[in-house]
């Protein structure tokens, strides 16, 4: 079983979100980056579990410049066998998917498992794009994944519930909560990560979208406190002022 896991680096959730150069660039000063949680906790760990059971290898792939290497090493420390860095800053989702598909197309991967979204640009798009580029089945928003007999059985979110679906390998799955539990790298993992193979490949540059400008949401007006004894007033405000009931 050969599994490819795309991983992204993102600003930590608690980072201050601000912009520079006339609100056209994200201000990276003092921002702490982390591995994207759905990649680290769900897709990577489930890939490792499958390989531990079925045999095979897990390759992580990341698009980013040389300063991304510490995040790739972390994924290796958690247990991936080897890694690929696409040597360019990530631009739009299409471009990242294009580079991953370009790398994966002739490598014989049985599975590509992405996280459902990155917590910075919240796109939910890489998995579906890679599937279409590779012309393979895609199952999105998966909370469980079992592999047997050349097929993947996946629990996928639908409105108000779940469905269990089966697709043939190779395929692309996007993983979310429920798929696996976070693994903390141990000392042995961290030591061995230093010497695991990390290939650097050139990037294609085509993009379909670009961000012209950012802005911040309108500031929230101060909370209106309601007397806990007077819920009639709250209901009245929700009806008359907020007009939501």
């Amino acid at each position: 079983m050969k599994i490819l896991v795309p991983v992204s680096k993102v600003p930590d959730t608690t980072s201050k979100v601000a912009f520079t150069e006339g609100n056209t660039k994200f201000a990276t000063d003092n921002v702490t980056y982390i591995l994207n949680p759905t990649d680290e906790w769900y897709s990577l760990v489930r890939a490792l579990e499958i390989v531990e059971k079925e045999g095979g290898s897990v390759t992580v792939i990341h698009q980013g410049e040389a300063d991304s290497e510490q995040f790739i090493r972390k994924a290796l420390a958690i247990g991936a066998n080897d890694a690929v860095r696409i040597d360019a800053a990530a631009t739009d989702g299409y471009n990242v998917a294009l580079n991953i598909a370009e790398y994966a197309k002739d490598k014989g991967f049985d599975l590509v498992i992405t996280g459902k979204e990155t917590i910075d640009y919240n796109g939910f798009q890489i998995g579906g794009m890679i599937a279409e580029m590779l012309n393979v089945p895609y199952v999105s928003l998966a909370s469980s994944l079992e592999v047997a007999g050349g097929k993947a059985t996946v629990s996928r979110d639908i409105e108000g519930g779940k469905e269990i679906v089966e697709v043939s390998l190779p395929c692309v799955i996007s993983a979310q909560k429920g798929m696996a539990e976070q693994r903390i790298p141990n000392m042995k993992g961290i030591m061995s990560a230093r010497t695991k193979p990390l290939a650097v490949v050139p990037a294609l540059t085509e993009t379909l979208t670009s961000i012209k400008v950012y802005d911040l949401p309108a500031a929230k007006t101060a909370v209106k406190l309601i007397d806990p004894e007077n819920m009639d007033e709250l209901i009245n405000l929700l009806h008359v002022e907020a007009k939501v009931i």
Binding site: G93, A97, N122, F124, Q125, G128, M129, E132, Y138, L208
Partner: peptide
């Protein structure tokens, strides 16, 4: 979320997700 990224690639059409 499953369809739109595929359509974007198939039609070579930029996606707003």
């Amino acid at each position: 979320k499953a369809i739109a990224p595929r359509v974007s690639v198939r039609m070579k059409a930029g996606l707003i997700p």
